[in-house]
């Protein structure tokens, strides 16, 4: 049974969580990535885009675009995965190297840019777990 019942739930819960990151300390890391990051989801289908809002230091650090609205801007990095894999990733339960090797996660673009984010996600995972436990946006 998929964690996200439908696209609406995916956008509300995961999209909503991304919205909280736009004003969080870690959100500033988008500027080190250096361009838009697109997430393509399957089962349910969905598409979320992080679009950086310069200059660095300003909050929100990026805008979250949903669905067709996320298709307008060419991404620097694209991550394609099942929505369930994404859910487990943000819980901190996915070994990135293994997920890439098994094609559970496809990454297109300069992966080294994403490495700027990874070491900082340890503090984000528990917040996602709490967000999910709290049922998403209030």
């Amino acid at each position: 049974m998929a964690f996200f019942a439908d696209t609406e739930a995916l956008y509300r819960i995961l999209g909503g969580f991304f919205e909280t990151l736009t004003t969080a300390e870690e959100g500033q890391l988008i500027h080190r990535v250096g361009g838009p990051v697109l997430f393509l989801y399957h089962r349910p289908e969905g598409r979320l885009l992080w679009s950086p809002l310069p200059p660095p230091g300003q909050r929100p650090a990026f805008r979250v675009a949903y669905g067709d609205d996320a298709a307008g801007e060419p991404p620097l990095l694209t991550f394609e995965q099942d929505a369930d894999t994404a859910h487990r990733f943000w819980l901190g339960e996915i070994d990135l190297a293994q997920a890439l090797a098994r094609q559970q996660l496809r990454a297109i673009g300069p992966l080294s840019r994403a490495m700027k984010l990874l070491p900082h996600l340890d503090s984000v995972y528990p917040r996602y777990a709490a967000w999910v436990a709290g049922g998403g946006p209030a």
Partner: peptide
């Protein structure tokens, strides 16, 4: 060095 093998 080039980032093709991304490590911290």
């Amino acid at each position: 060095f080039s980032g093709d093998l991304p490590l911290p």
